[in-house]
Design a binder for these strands. Structure first.
Ligand SMILES: [Mn+2]
Ligand SMILES: [Mn+2]
Ligand SMILES: [Zn+2]
Ligand SMILES: [Zn+2]
Lengths: 138, 138
DNA sequence: GAGACCATGCAACAGAAGTGCATTTAATGG
DNA sequence: CCATTAAATGCACTTCTGTTGCATGGTCTC
């Protein structure tokens, strides 16, 4: 049993060949990926399978879904200790308008916001748009 | 010339019958509206016309588009003094998971965030999800 | 009124998300 | 090992939102 297989198994996700491939693909990138990104990376893979794999990963806390404002859902592997399942890891995300990549800034938590009376916060999403470090270096 | 007509005219938008209706509809609501909401409110209206009207309104700074995480674009009238065109009015938005309504919290600005070295912020979007005041009162 | 310009209506398309169902694959128990 | 069963995958299809092209209609200007 490899490292990846153990990781999936620990999260009660059966480590099939496809799932291992997808997991490794996501681990190899330091940016969030869209369903289409994975689809293009594995020509022979079925979109539905990829779709359901991501859903399964999300339900089991292996990845978290990211809404970066592009209207295309992105996904990124959860870091060890990520409690995104219970909305306790509200780190912010950065979307580069130049290279169109989205990254997790896991060290940067969303600050607490005081809401008007009667409003109850349960979740939050903060996306900063701009130019990423790679793009600003050129 | 009515008040609404003057408002549109001031923003260089020709005050047609349809545009006045849409403006009044949005002004009558205290929540953000989706294209479909307007479509349902005016049975006889063409979806494309509504779509382009909203685009025009947005370009001219009459409304601003809101991404509340539902993957359905919402729009809300800009308040007097709103500088959303130049990303200078970064108020936050609240989306109620109970009634599915989205509101502008225009008094609540997005706090400044320190980004890692190399990252340049140009825009930001902060959405709080939870239960709104109306829904929490019941 | 003629022409120009803009708004509107109609049709069609694109892309992403999602579902139903048949088939294959993998785990389990005898 | 084979049969049973459940889960994963593949394929087809649908829905929804957003978007564009093009023809038509209305309005303003000269
Ligand atoms: Mn993240
Ligand atoms: Mn707003
Ligand atoms: Zn970039
Ligand atoms: Zn509500």
């Amino acid at each position: 049993m490899t490292e990846v297989e153990r990781t999936l198994d620990n999260k009660s996700v059966r480590p099939t060949a496809m799932r291992i491939l997808i997991y490794k693909f996501m681990a190899s990138k330091n940016t969030a990926v869209a369903l289409t990104d994975i689809e293009n990376a594995f020509e022979k893979a079925e979109r539905t399978t990829l779709y359901r794999t991501l859903k399964t990963f999300e339900e089991k806390g292996i990845v978290h879904q990211i809404d970066d404002g592009t209207n295309i859902s992105k996904f990124a592997l959860c870091q060890p200790g990520c409690n995104c399942e219970i909305d306790q890891d509200l780190h912010l995300h950065f979307h580069c308008s130049h290279c169109d990549k989205t990254v997790c800034l896991t060290e940067h938590k969303i600050p607490h916001i005081n809401l008007p009376h009667g409003y109850i916060a349960e979740d939050a999403n903060l996306v900063i748009k701009g130019v990423c470090d790679s793009c600003s270096a050129h």
